[in-house]
């Protein structure tokens, strides 16, 4: 971390080449994260490039309240949102057609494998829930970092994540032939009932 601050200080002092060290350190993570948001490699690369350029231009505004990585992710997510809006007509229409067909056809669903199901269900999540899920599960960020990146309160970040997981669980239970998940019968074994009554007291 100390080394990173030194790199930032050096860049701000004019040693521009040192920014390359930050690029080298974070470009893989950033591309991977963006590719989860936008399933288009070329567009993802564009977003990563733009994000690093923005980070360089605004480097003097980095306050160190969160990690540099979190700050970079925040820039990338905002850049991705803007890019998505620009490309909306092309990207959304294609996605909507394929997803609509899959969700309306039971026979098609049965032939879907688990991976395809999970991919489509994650893409169907509302943006905020999807981002919180991606940042928590795939980027292993804390809820504090997620709240900073998403610009929302800690509890909101957690709520978005919870709602995402709950939705996915319900959808997977609807396709139990793929997961083997079923609703459990809720009756309790008799020997536990007395114990439960005591616990409630």
């Amino acid at each position: 971390m100390k080394e990173e601050w030194q790199i930032i200080a050096d860049v701000l002092q004019g040693q521009t080449h040192r920014f390359g060290e930050l690029v080298g350190k974070y470009q893989r993570d950033l591309l991977r994260m963006v590719m989860r948001l936008i399933s288009n490699v070329e567009l993802s690369e564009e977003i990563v490039q733009e994000s690093f350029i923005k980070a360089f231009k605004k480097l003097h505004l980095f306050e160190g309240k969160a990690s540099f990585r979190s700050w970079l992710y925040q820039i990338a997510i905002n850049t991705a949102k803007n890019k998505f809006r620009e490309c909306k007509k092309q990207v959304v229409s294609i996605d909507n057609v394929s997803i609509a067909v899959a969700s309306n056809s039971d026979s098609l669903l049965q032939s879907l494998d688990l991976k395809t199901l999970l991919q489509s269900e994650v893409q169907l999540l509302p943006n905020k829930q999807r981002i919180a899920l991606i940042l928590r599960i795939f980027e292993d960020l804390s809820f504090k970092e997620i709240s900073h990146i998403m610009g929302c309160p800690y509890d909101t970040a957690k709520a978005n994540y919870r709602h995402a997981l709950m939705k996915l669980r319900r959808r997977l239970m609807d396709h139990s032939h793929l997961t083997g998940w079923n609703e459990i019968e809720t009756h309790q074994a008799p020997e536990f009932l007395g114990f439960l009554a005591e616990a409630k007291q």
């Binding site: 490039q49 690093f52 350029i53 991976k115 994650v122 795939f138």
Partner: peptide
């Protein structure tokens, strides 16, 4: 989710090229 939704990442050559593009613009 972790197992099924792995992303296939490009190789090191791709990232060397990406880094060069970024630093050229910077």
């Amino acid at each position: 989710l972790v197992k099924e939704l792995t992303i296939e990442m490009p190789n090191d050559t791709y990232f060397d090229s990406l880094q060069n593009k970024i630093m050229s613009e910077i």
